[in-house]
Simulated scan of single mutants.
Amino acid sequence: MENLALTGDHEQIDRCLRALAQGHGIWRSDLVDRLKGEWSPLQRHWNINLASGLEAVRNIVWSNLIGYIENLYPRRAHRPVSPEDVDWSKEVAEISFNASTKREAVVLRRSSLQQRRDWLLLKYGRDRSASMRSLQRILDEAIEQIAERMVKVAAGAASSPGVSVELATPPRPPRQGNSLAHLVELSGELQQALNFVRDACKAQNRIFYTSDLLVTLLDLPGKRAAQCFDEATHIGQAVSIREQLAATLGDDRHHEPFVPFTWLERSDVQLAAEYAISDGRLVVSELHLLLAILDSDSATNRWLQRLLREEYPQVRAVAERHRHNGPTVVNSPTPDGLW
């Protein structure tokens, strides 16, 4: 009986995702009404508060889609899958749902699926040997994988603690970073705060997201990361960002299970360590980590880009300036005040 229920759920999600890709995609004006009605399986799986307004609902739909799209992995029967294949599948899926954050894709917001496919063929068709048929095949495969993973997440498919449901996705290769990165550590205050959040995720059996990283930075007593957002945009922006991310993280209905990790196994922390080394330091500060998040390809960073729009580059510029000119971290674990 359970297998039959999961099969029915998969079919419903598949149908909803195919409908979502039609018309204006996530930019359709009737998105809330559709989620109240025939697309209610998506609303249920993503636990969307439909009373929060169209923009907030669209952000939740977008962030969930991007999270799943980032884990897409094309299947090829007759040849190995290349990194270009993976990137192309993600690009086609994002454009199909009208969820791309690329500047050149802004013109597609009021386009139909057919118009978005025409745009892809015009822009990339020759380089990718793409066709309408191949674009449909990629979308079909993306929807199949997304629906499958949504059902697994909802059913708690990983029966053993610490086992990810993303078993079909090959692990990302480690960053080819600075050979001294393993000597770098997080500042005392930063590591204590991040360890607390990681332990909480483990206790809840919830995967640790980049959003957890950013919320932790915004909550640190020194407020150096929060200051970057407020200075680049307006007072209160950091609080708003923190509240929106915390609300999403607080929803426990669609999170994947916890996967054990060390901090230097994360690519963003590795990048932050490289920034620290380039500054002649062996301790990662919250600004190093903020810059690494802003330079990452995470769903959280894409969400920030979409939220802040033209103000987004200013956040990085302010963080970069404070990185070099701001005060050092008081609670440094090193005797010479390195941060």
Rank of each mutant, 00 (worst) to 15 (best):
I69T: 03
L50V: 02
A181F: 08
F258E: 11
R34L: 14
G125V: 05
Q176C: 04
A292C: 08
I143F: 10
T300P: 00
E256K: 03
D297T: 14
S211F: 05
L121Y: 11
A142E: 06
S100E: 13
S63E: 15
H24L: 11
I26Q: 04
D85W: 07
P170Y: 10
E55P: 04
Y312L: 07
D230V: 14
A157C: 12
R117F: 08
G156H: 06
E265P: 04
P221H: 09
G250P: 09
Q145M: 15
P260N: 13
E84W: 04
H10T: 01
K123Q: 15
Q145G: 09
Q204C: 00
T262C: 03
R133Q: 10
R109H: 09
N3C: 02
H255P: 11
D127W: 11
V215L: 03
I293H: 03
E256F: 05
R306S: 02
L289E: 08
G188R: 02
H182V: 03
K152N: 05
P174L: 12
S164W: 15
Y209F: 13
W39S: 08
F229T: 08
V315N: 07
L290M: 14
I60S: 02
E55I: 04
T210V: 15
R172T: 01
I95Q: 11
T262W: 04
L139T: 04
I66K: 01
R76M: 04
V283Q: 09
V239M: 06
A276H: 03
S285V: 01
R116I: 03
N325W: 10
L139I: 01
G250A: 07
N195L: 09
G156A: 07
S159D: 13
A272M: 10
N59L: 08
D252V: 07
P161T: 10
R242S: 09
P161W: 13
D14E: 15
K90Q: 14
L214W: 11
L35K: 06
N49F: 10
D219L: 15
R198Y: 01
I95V: 15
A155W: 08
E70I: 01
S267T: 13
L35Y: 07
A21R: 05
Y68I: 02
D33L: 10
E70L: 06
Q244C: 00
H45G: 00
Q191T: 00
H10I: 01
V92R: 14
D252Q: 11
Q237T: 14
P170A: 04
